[in-house]
Design a protein around this nucleic acid. Structure first.
Length: 665
DNA sequence: CGGTCTATAATTTTT
DNA sequence: TTATAGACCG
């Protein structure tokens, strides 16, 4: 345990507290992950069995990182037996074992938000009257909110309103498709524990020691889950920072961390306030902002890193000038310091703000990477192939079956499909079963009948093949794609050959991923599909490791750090965003600002515009009200005109040339 | 059915 | 400004 003594006293206290509830309030950059991983090592050192340890995170990225760091601290064999995963992955594991008690089959499919939306759209189209309109996205949010508010899965009150009817129907169709959505994973697990105490007990005994990361982001159901899992032994350690709760709009309850004592009485409470990331000026600025929030656990970050340079705040004329200034400032600093581009990040409230920044970066040929954006798994061809796989893994999956039933075209037209849908609704059977039923086939012309039979036979044949114990999944999928001539379909549907080749490559990539999966897991096709929907942003690993300036939203920046950070567009209407004020969610916007500030290690520059292009026309902007709260001691307000009209100062130029010489010689 | 046109709206997005 | 959904027409 050599490294235990590298921890500061508070961190040590958190690590050593292994029995009973423990709340670790870990401010930004205070070594949170270090404490969790060290605590796991400490538990093992003190005789805990690795299989009894559970660490839950929110993202796969966090889980992977934690796994890697634990692996450095403990024996490999032991590390493998520790459960480190996301809430959702944990629920999948639990449900695969016992979901049959709730009337689902264990090969259930998981619908991501795209699938969800598709299903909702389908339902709205079918059941709404002509004069009724319902935005599918709105319906999706309503459904999610309803589920999280513990409506549970039962008849909603009255069928009169359209949203209620859609909700009801949605849940019904999910169940016949043997599918669950992200919310269901949590709800069903809680239901399972509630109604089947033996199952609850099995897992309570299994996980003697529980750790939850980013606890401020848990929602009601996740708390409920933790309460069940820790219900007997109360060895529950939660780590988080209420000041960094920025996902309230997605259902996260800050109250969970603010009222932790309420759920797990008499916890040990440890505050981590020593920051190892930022300079004093940056922390001073951060403290002065967050202090103004009501309803929080008071904390004050400090560090031994010295004051450092002051935080720069600058007003710029407009968003064009802002982007231009920020990017040239980055270029200047990069040259002077001979730094990697990856040491710089520009953080903004809305993705739309990245455009001007990108333009400037491209103009100056500076490499950059944007975090976020279209996922690999949202591309049409990838979804098509995944739809085939979903149908083979779970033939009741109507939504995915409809996606591929005539892709590529095989003579099953819309009237036939409509008939099949109506028929399956009437008999409450899946479309797959309907297609195979002789009664249904009697309705069809002989030509269509042949097409339907052939399609059903295709699915049957590949399903059987994939179920063989030693089946080589990726080889079989390759064979299937050749048989249906999906490549031919791509060539036909793409405008340019380049696009077709690109899409073909995407499919090869997907099949490769499947092969990789089979190489390291025994969970087969169902497991692969679950992993793919629960971990959608893997592509970054392949492309995203080059040096470049990071462009990122405040939300996505949580948990990251950069030596030099620029916060842009810190104006009323942007941060805080206009849409957040009406709801009275100002606190969360302030936390967002706080999160942005605390990403910076060495330097922080904040800009706001006097005018900004909004929806095509220039509109005047006022500095964010948050800027008033910045402690003047930490801040230097810089005039844009002085900077913009000033040629490089002699001092700067000299350093510059010195650096150049150094680089050359 | 698919392509083009027009009206409308406009955060953030861990799984 | 720009993206997207629905309408509309060949």
């Amino acid at each position: 345990m050599a490294r235990f003594f590298d921890l500061n006293p508070e961190q040590q206290a958190a690590v050593k507290c292994t029995e009973g509830p423990l709340l670790v309030l870990a401010g930004a950059g205070t070594g949170k992950t270090r404490v969790i991983t060290m605590r796991i090592a400490y538990l093992l050192h003190n005789g805990a069995k690795p299989e009894n340890i559970l660490a839950v995170t929110f993202t796969n990225k966090a889980a992977n990182e934690m796994r890697a760091r634990v692996a450095q601290l403990v024996e490999k064999v032991e590390a493998k037996k520790i459960t480190i995963c996301t809430f959702h992955a944990l629920c999948v594991r639990i449900l695969r074992q016992d979901i049959e008690r709730l009337g689902y089959k264990s090969n259930f499919a998981i619908y991501d938000e795209g699938d969800q939306l598709g299903l909702i759209r389908k339902i709205i189209a079918r059941i709404s009257a002509k004069n009724e309109k319902l935005d599918p996205n709105l319906a999706k949010n309503l459904i999610s909110r309803a589920k999280n508010a513990h409506w549970k899965i039962k008849e909603p009150e009255g069928e009169s309103s359209l949203p209620a009817a859609v909700f009801h129907r949605y849940q019904e169709e999910l169940k016949t498709a043997n599918a669950v959505d992200f919310d269901d994973l949590l709800i069903l697990t809680v239901n399972l524990f509630e109604n089947h105490p033996d199952v609850a007990q099995k897992w309570q005994t299994r996980f003697r020691y529980i750790m939850v990361d980013e606890f401020q982001d848990t929602n009601g159901l996740q708390l409920e889950l933790v309460r069940y899992l820790g219900g007997n032994h109360h060895n529950v350690c939660v780590v988080g920072d209420d000041d960094q709760s920025i996902y309230g709009w997605r259902g996260a309850e800050v109250a969970n961390i603010l009222e932790f004592e309420h759920h797990f009485p008499n916890p040990e409470v440890v505050k981590l306030e020593q920051n190892y990331r930022s300079t004093g000026s940056i922390l001073g600025a951060a403290n002065s902002i967050i202090r103004h929030n009501p309803r929080r656990r008071p904390k004050s970050l400090w560090s031994q890193n010295g004051e450092g340079e002051k935080v720069t705040v600058m007003e710029v004329p407009d968003d064009h000038e802002e982007a231009n200034y920020v990017i040239s400032e980055i270029q200047k600093r990069q040259q002077i310091g001979g730094l990697n581009w990856s040491r710089f990040a520009v953080i903004f409230r809305m993705n739309a703000q990245s455009r001007l920044l990108e333009e400037n970066l491209r103009r100056l040929r500076i490499p950059y990477r944007i975090i976020g954006g279209r996922s690999f798994f949202e591309r049409r061809e990838v979804k098509d192939v995944l739809a085939y796989l979903s149908c083979l893994a779970n033939p009741s999956d109507d939504l995915n079956l409809l996606r591929i039933i005539n892709t590529p075209a095989r003579g099953i037209g819309s009237s036939t499909i409509e008939l099949a849908v109506a028929e399956s609704n009437q008999h409450k059977t899946s479309i797959y079963e309907t297609l195979r039923s002789p009664v249904f086939q009697e309705f069809l012309s002989s030509r269509t009948k042949t097409a339907v039979e052939k399609f059903a036979e295709l699915l049957d044949r590949y399903e059987t093949e994939l179920l063989q114990p030693l089946a080589n999944l990726s080889a079989i999928v390759d064979k299937l794609l050749v048989e249906i001539d999906y490549t031919g379909e791509l060539r036909k549907s793409c405008k340019t050959q380049e696009e077709a080749l690109n899409r073909e490559e995407n499919i090869r990539e997907l099949v490769r991923t499947l092969g990789d999966f089979q190489g390291r897991s025994t969970e087969g096709l169902t497991g692969f599909l679950a992993e793919v929907t629960l971990d959608q942003d893997r592509e970054e690993k392949s492309e995203g490791d080059h040096d470049g300036v990071t462009l990122i939203t405040f939300h996505a920046a949580k948990g990251l750090e950069f030596p030099h950070v620029f916060l842009v567009g810190i104006e009323e209407g942007v941060l805080p965003h206009d849409r957040s004020k009406v709801d009275g969610h100002l606190d969360e916007e302030r936390r967002l600002f706080y999160v942005g500030i605390t990403r910076a290690m060495e330097s922080l520059t904040i800009t706001h515009c006097s005018s900004r292009m909004k929806y095509g026309s220039a509109s005047p902007c006022h500095p964010s009200i948050f800027l008033k709260d910045l402690d003047p001691v930490c801040v230097e307000i810089v005039s844009y005109h002085v900077i913009a009209n000033q040629p490089a100062s002699e001092g700067t130029a000299r350093t510059h040339f010195a650096k150049m010489r150094e680089l050359l010689g």
